[in-house]
Design a protein around this nucleic acid. Structure first.
Lengths: 175, 175
DNA sequence: CCAACCATGTAAGCTGTTACATGATTGA
DNA sequence: TCAATCATGTAACAGCTTACATGGTTGG
């Protein structure tokens, strides 16, 4: 179960698709930045099939293997992944996109944890920059670390903005 | 020649070190985020040695393989990498840390290119968000893309700040 | 003397990348 | 008919992760 596998499960949950259609999603949307695409996707799908996470159902007349559907096991695995504590922020971002559409509680909870994780990591880099080790580093190396810190701050800031959007939008359907 | 190899060359250029010392750098500084550390570093060093990029010189009494030094070939390879056009921003950041300390021209040039690359990619995501495809995506997926856009903006903003610092500092030794 | 650290490695396994191969169908 | 696109794969290779193995040295 790699990030790619989870991404595939997430996409299939949004709607059954063929392997080719899944590949196209990776080629034509920014999700391609998270997990790669061309020759890795079919092996991953086959491995998911072997694991009993997905099933290919073919309409009687159609070509190819048909459309992949989630099995109960696949759904459980996906939802387990979605509910896991936040570790790597990159992977967390991928998860965010697949969080249940109809559960604003979970979304807010996620955003809170994500913000906290980003702030913690940013503070870690800040501590490093203020510490002894950093004094022996070149200005450029320090700036490189500062870049990392800014990225983390941007992540935290994003989480706050996203939370705002989520607190307002779900109810403000028509004004 | 992976990013890890280049990182090793860059560190060795800053000062000859033993394999163990190099490993420690990855374990104790944020460079560990760029390229991994534990059991991958010795193979990488050996491969660099086979390629004739580094040489281990041992003081007569010392333990271990001694300190790695760059060869002419290693230095040429490193500088070639440093001078390459910016592709992946993550790798570019790693390069930035190893740019020649005494060449503010090159640093400013790098920062300009980096900023441009970040802005271009940010604009690409913005275009995607404004385009047709994004309309069929969930709000969360759109927010995930927005997160990527903010990260890129933060990178561009960092480049501007770093440039400022570089335009002032090199000459302002003593106010 | 024992733990911690110096110092260097090997081997298995998993993934992803790259590049190639195959064949059907569809639109110009 | 010819190119593009649908649709699915395979095989070779490179790289990283994890975990284990091995010894010497130093400090409490």
């Amino acid at each position: 179960m790699t990030p790619l596998s989870y991404a595939l499960l997430g996409l299939i949950e949004l709607g059954p698709r063929s392997g080719y259609a899944l590949r196209k999603v990776f080629e034509t949307t920014p999700i391609g930045n998270y997990s790669s695409s061309p020759g890795s996707i079919y092996p991953a799908l086959n491995s998911l099939e072997k694991l009993g996470m997905v099933e290919a159902r073919r309409a009687p007349d159609a070509r190819g293997k048909g459309l992949y559907h989630l099995t109960a096991k696949g759904e459980a695995t996906l939802h387990g992944w979605l509910a896991a504590p936040i570790g790597d922020l990159g992977e967390a971002m991928l998860r965010f996109a697949f969080l249940a559409e109809d559960d604003p509680e979970a979304v807010l909870e996620f955003l809170n944890c994500f913000e906290a994780a980003a702030e913690t990591q940013a503070a870690g880099l800040q501590a490093f920059l203020s510490g002894e080790n950093a004094k022996f580093m070149s200005v450029k190396s320090q700036l490189a670390v500062e870049h990392g810190r800014r990225q983390l701050e941007a992540s935290a800031e994003w989480a706050r903005a996203a939370r705002q959007q989520y607190c307002q939008e779900p109810r403000g359907e028509n004004l």
